[in-house]
Design a protein around this nucleic acid. Sequence first.
DNA 1: ATCCCGAGGG
DNA 2: CCCTCTGGAT
Length: 212
Amino acid sequence: MFAGLTDKARAARINRTLATLYPDARCLLDYSNALELLVATILAAQCTDKKVNEVTASLFRRYRSAADFANADPAQLEQEIKPTGFFRQKAKSVIAACRALVERHGGRVPESIEELTALPGVGRKTANVVLGNVFGQPAIIVDTHVLRLAARLRLSKETDADKVEKDLQALLPPGEWTAFSHRIGFHGRQVCFARNPAHDRCAIAQWCPSRP
DNA sequence: ATCCCGAGGG
DNA sequence: CCCTCTGGAT
């Protein structure tokens, strides 16, 4: 309870306000199909979406199918994705995940959270990005921004991303999950910075226990 | 020094 | 729970 509201009512007001503030909130990774978004999201770990897009612009011209990535030369793929950081791990994950796509799913990207997270290098965050953005399934995407803002807004007391995901699911209707995630992401990047949050120009400060 | 649309291993 | 993997931006 904060500001005389239940957490659910407060979450609803926060969501509504952010929806007005960021009517165009969406995934900012460039992609044209599920496979491209899956790969882009693997590359997005601890990296800005802008940097990922710079890399994938040429990458997706060279690799067009799961089989293409599955058969990639690891050393070459490492060089191609180097600017995104963690390039050895990510190259390994992309190749292993795509190999699993070819072997288990006929080269297609599966549409369930269980099958997605069973892919090497694919956790709940990556799986939810794909489910929410290309398969139209309700998905709370707990990235660094959602994790940080959920804590500051006290929409969850948990620090574990999976538990925060559950808490947020309980506070919002499924139809809002994906859009809410993007709105929080936008607000995290533009106002509620990791280091010095701009409380003075924050549209949801009245519902935020962390404001000065 | 800290952060960026994380995941896996110990 | 912790740690590592990576490098560029701020």
